[in-house]
Each structure stands twice: as structure tokens, then as C-alpha cells.
Amino acid sequence: MITAERKPMEELTECMKPFGRILLVGCNECVTVCAAGGRKEVGLLSSALQMHFMKENKPFEVKELTLERQCDPEYVEELAPHINQVDAVLSMACGCGVQEIARRYKEKPVFPAVNTKFMGASESQGVWAERCAGCGDCVLGITGGVCPIARCSKQLFNGPCGGSTNGKCEIDSSVDCAWQLIWDRLKALGKVDLYEENIAAKDWRTGRGGGPRKIIREDLAS
């Protein structure tokens, strides 16, 4: 999922200060799962913002709405009946959702309420960790299902650097060395020969190196 964290209240109250009536929009997808911008977080932020402005004696109204997905135009369309009743939109979705609202409602100021972080997985209740860097050319099949790009601090191919100690990364002893994880997994699979294979220098054009990316499925596109 795409993970996110709510911005500090100080930043949010500052950017909402010029407005008297806002639409606070959550998203039922990734940000709900990582407890950053689902229906519950919308309620909590709405409460916090209203309490802050009531304390400041400033009229401030929040309309709460949580869409099924903010990154799809079909769902963003559901904001249409409400958009003219508000001065601004505060979105609790990832950056994709914020931009989709901005694209559809050009006249309305839109602000992000969360900082979008990374593509990650849940390690345990309340803990999310980065797992995929979206490089566009997946190597997980030869690295035992552990990504050296997302999980190695130096994004190294072909083995660890000299900073790998007791299975931990030199940047922080709480960070696993991705190449140790790869080695352990290949050993468990009986595939250590894969470790000996040289991976060629990566072509980063499939990732962000090639500029903004797009997928066009001819069979689906209209």
C-alpha cells in the first residue's frame, strides 16, 4: 500500500486559517489501512481543526466526506455537489488523490493533510516499512523475494557493502541488511547459485530516471 502520515497540526491550522468552510476528504484505500486518512482519521482531524479554531474564536466549518478512492475520477466526481459550498478542500489521501481533486476542481484550492511516504507493508500492528521503490523492472525473482532497491540503504546490486554487520545495516542497527536477508532466503530456498549471478547495471529509465511514467493498456483504454 501507499503509506502516509498526518502533517503536524501547526502546519494544517496555518494553511486552513484563511478559510471559513472546508471540505475534508478521506480515502477508503491505502491511507485507511495505514490509519492516516480514512473515515476515522477524517473525523479526528475535523474535530481537532474545529476545536482549534473555536478556541481562536474563528468561525470554521468542516464538511467530512470519505471517498472510495481519491485517485479515480469516477469517485472524485462525488465531490461535485459539495464543492461550491466550501472555500477549500483538505485531502487526507496520498499525493495521487490530492492531485486528482486539483485536476477536477480547478477553481478550488486543495491542500494535502498528510505527507505521502512510501510503498510499504505492515510489519505488525501500527508498524509499516518500505518494501517497493517502483523501479519498473522487478528483480525479486532472483533476489529471493527481498528487494535490494527498496530495502538496501545504498540500493546495491550484487551483494552487501562493507557496512553490513551481524545482519544489520550501518546506517542504523535497527535496519536489516537487505543482502543478509537475500542470502538467508536464497539459502533457505536452496538457490544460493543465484547469488553468484552478476546482475547487470540497472537501467533506471524504467524508474523515475525516465521522467513521469504512464501505463497504457490498449485493450482497456478508451
Binding site: 476515522k40 473525523g43 479526528l44 474535530s47 481537532a48
Partner: peptide, 11 residues
């Protein structure tokens, strides 16, 4: 009891 219940009570 969730944070939302406490916040709504205060609000």
C-alpha cells in the same frame, strides 16, 4: 474507546 470518542466529547 477510540481517540475519536474522546475528541468528540471535548468538541
Amino acid at each position: 474507546v477510540d481517540a475519536i470518542h474522546m475528541m468528540k466529547a471535548l468538541e
